[in-house]
Structure formats: C-alpha cells, structure tokens
Amino acid sequence: MALDPTYGYTLPMLRQVGAPPPPDDFAEFWTGLYERARLVDPAPVARPSGPDGALRDVEFTSLDGIRVGGWLSLPADGRVERGLVVGHGYGGRAAPDAAIPVERAAVLYLCSRGMPARGRVPGIPDTAREHVLHGIAARDTYVHGGCAADVWCAVSALCRLVPQAAARVDYLAGSFGGGIGALAVPWDERIRSACLVVPSFGNHPLRLTLPCTGSGEAVRRYARDHPEVRGVLSYFDAATAATFLRVPTHVGLALADPAVPPPGQFAVYNALAGPRERFLLTAGHTEYAGKADEARALLAAQHDFLTSEHDR
C-alpha cells in the first residue's frame, strides 16, 4: 500500500499534536551534557577555502575529543555583526548553502559527527539508517547526544574564530539538524533564536507508529524488536525538548512528508515554550510544483524573523 505523506492528518489535527512528558531527570541530563561540552577546548582551525578568503575550511574539537569540520563563511567586506551556526539534514553536507537569511554574519556550516562530508569519524556510521541507531541502547552512548554537543562546540568554535560573532548567535537547520537543534538550543544561553525546518525526532511514541521513508523507519523497526529503547528515546524527543525551548523560534512545517511525518514536526512546534512563528510548506522531502517559490518565501520569512524587533 502506498504511503500517505499526510498520515491522514488535517491542519486542525496537526495543531493538536502534543509532546510526551519528560523523564524526571530530563533537564538534569541535558544540562549535564551541556556543561561537559562547554568545558571542551574546541581548538578551532580555519584555512582559506577560496581565493578571496571569504570561505574557509574549518575543523574543531567536540565532546569526547572528536574532531568535526565544516565551512566558515564571512561577509565579503569583513564586517561581522552576528554569528550563525547552520546544521544539515540526514544526508550530511557536501558544501555550504547557496543562501542564508541574514547579512553581516559569520556562518559556521557544521558537519555533525559521523556525517558526510567533514564529520566522518571512525566507528560512527555515515548513513542515516545506521547512524540513527548508533549507541541507541543507552542514553549516555546515543549518538544524538553527541550531535547536540557538536552544536554547542560549534558555537564555541565560531566565537573563538570570530569574536564579533559572539554578539549574537542564532541556529538554523532542517530535518535531522532541525530535530538536533530542538534538543540543543534550550540549554545554550549563547543561542538567541532558532530557525528549524521540518524538524525530526518529535514525539517518538507517535513516530514509532508511523512508517516512513526516513531515518525514523530504522528506529521504528528497531523499537519493535527492542521495546526497551523507548526509555532511551524519551531523552531525545525533540518535542519534549521544545517544552524547554524559550528563545524565539521559527519553524517551517510540511503538511505532507514521507520522510519526517508531519505530526512529529507539529509536535515540536506546538510544544515550544517561547515566542514562535510558523511557515507552512506544501510538502517536505519530495518534489512538487512551486517548491522553489516556497523555498524563496521561507528564506524571506526567516530573514524577517531573525531581524525583527522581538528577536533582538
């Protein structure tokens, strides 16, 4: 039977999807992980990646001594007024994005641990269906905790490389990176706002009932044979984490998505504890008429959000 990318949910139904309650020590677990990451010396290194020096190859140390990399982009005239850490989807990142929603920003394009092209680490799988299960048997070994730490260490590295960026740091990512952002941003006081697009990992108990074409399918099948993993997943639920996320957050939400079921996306948005704005997308993780126009409109909406008065 063909997969219905709406999962039978209408917009009014999506607006009612909630977040699972947190384990009693949820905040303690995450603040402890964050404190460990803040003690890491990122020891960032940046090298010219092009003739004009505006783009640089970068690498830095994250939690557990893992070196990850990416790219650092600087304004052509060198005038930096803010910083932006940009994550990626579960395919990894092969290059910086073609466009970002803010000007005069030092932008660190992060490659999370294990992910192509500059996050590959021996021992961590680099494909989504295997990466999403790495270390999942225990909360202290699950790779998504390390990926959140990569975000925090990326902020540290960015502020070390470009001190002016520390005046204001924002986070932007979609899909995998959107879900990791929801997990990471609540605990880092240096991050002033976030833009998440079709965020993953929202409402795991519901996700485990929804077949999909994304990484969630590997988790759903694993949990079917290892039901005890539900306890681990409760610490890595992006919707649960969103109940602790109080900085202004903009979320792009797909009404249909075969890879990241829309109910999970909306669970993240609905649970946000701070100021929030949404942008509705026709679909996610698929081609459709008008997709390019929607992408441009989303970029414009993110620009307005990141430069609005309420977010200063």
Results as ranks from 00 to 15, higher is better:
residue 4 D to E: 12
residue 8 G to L: 10
residue 9 Y to D: 00
residue 10 T to P: 14
residue 12 P to A: 12
residue 13 M to F: 12
residue 14 L to C: 02
residue 18 G to V: 14
residue 32 G to D: 07
residue 32 G to R: 05
residue 37 A to F: 09
residue 39 L to D: 14
residue 40 V to E: 02
residue 41 D to S: 11
residue 42 P to F: 05
residue 42 P to V: 00
residue 43 A to M: 13
residue 44 P to M: 05
residue 47 R to L: 01
residue 48 P to W: 04
residue 49 S to N: 01
residue 52 D to L: 04
residue 54 A to H: 11
residue 55 L to Y: 10
residue 57 D to W: 07
residue 58 V to F: 09
residue 60 F to W: 13
residue 63 L to M: 06
residue 64 D to G: 09
residue 67 R to V: 14
residue 67 R to S: 13
residue 67 R to N: 04
residue 69 G to T: 14
residue 70 G to V: 10
residue 74 L to I: 00
residue 74 L to M: 10
residue 75 P to Y: 02
residue 76 A to Y: 11
residue 77 D to Y: 08
residue 79 R to E: 02
residue 79 R to Y: 09
residue 85 V to E: 00
residue 87 G to N: 09
residue 102 V to A: 07
residue 107 V to N: 01
residue 107 V to C: 02
residue 108 L to Q: 00
residue 111 C to W: 10
residue 113 R to M: 08
residue 115 M to P: 12
residue 120 R to N: 04
residue 120 R to W: 09
residue 120 R to S: 04
residue 124 I to F: 10
residue 125 P to T: 00
residue 136 I to T: 04
residue 137 A to C: 14
residue 140 D to P: 11
residue 145 G to D: 03
residue 151 V to Y: 02
residue 151 V to N: 01
residue 153 C to T: 07
residue 157 A to C: 12
residue 161 L to C: 11
residue 161 L to P: 00
residue 163 P to F: 04
residue 165 A to G: 12
residue 165 A to S: 10
residue 166 A to F: 14
residue 167 A to Q: 15
residue 169 V to Q: 01
residue 175 S to I: 15
residue 177 G to P: 06
residue 179 G to P: 06
residue 179 G to R: 08
residue 182 A to P: 00
residue 189 E to V: 15
residue 189 E to L: 15
residue 190 R to K: 14
residue 193 S to Y: 13
residue 193 S to L: 11
residue 194 A to S: 06
residue 194 A to E: 05
residue 195 C to T: 08
residue 195 C to A: 15
residue 197 V to R: 03
residue 198 V to M: 05
residue 199 P to Y: 06
residue 201 F to Q: 06
residue 204 H to K: 11
residue 205 P to S: 12
residue 207 R to Y: 14
residue 219 V to K: 05
residue 220 R to H: 08
residue 224 R to K: 15
residue 225 D to E: 15
residue 225 D to K: 15
residue 227 P to E: 04
residue 229 V to A: 06
residue 231 G to L: 11
residue 232 V to K: 07
residue 237 D to Q: 14
residue 238 A to N: 13
residue 245 L to D: 00
residue 248 P to V: 15
residue 254 A to I: 01
residue 255 L to Q: 08
residue 256 A to Y: 09
residue 258 P to F: 10
residue 258 P to R: 03
residue 263 P to M: 07
residue 267 A to I: 03
residue 267 A to G: 04
residue 270 N to A: 02
residue 271 A to V: 05
residue 272 L to W: 03
residue 273 A to G: 05
residue 274 G to W: 07
residue 276 R to C: 10
residue 278 R to Q: 13
residue 279 F to W: 09
residue 281 L to I: 08
residue 283 A to K: 01
residue 283 A to P: 09
residue 284 G to C: 03
residue 286 T to W: 02
residue 287 E to P: 07
residue 288 Y to T: 04
residue 288 Y to S: 05
residue 289 A to G: 05
residue 293 D to H: 15
residue 294 E to G: 14
residue 296 R to D: 12
residue 301 A to E: 12
residue 303 H to E: 06
residue 303 H to Q: 04
residue 306 L to Q: 03
residue 306 L to C: 06
residue 309 E to G: 02
residue 310 H to M: 08
residue 311 D to L: 14
residue 312 R to T: 13
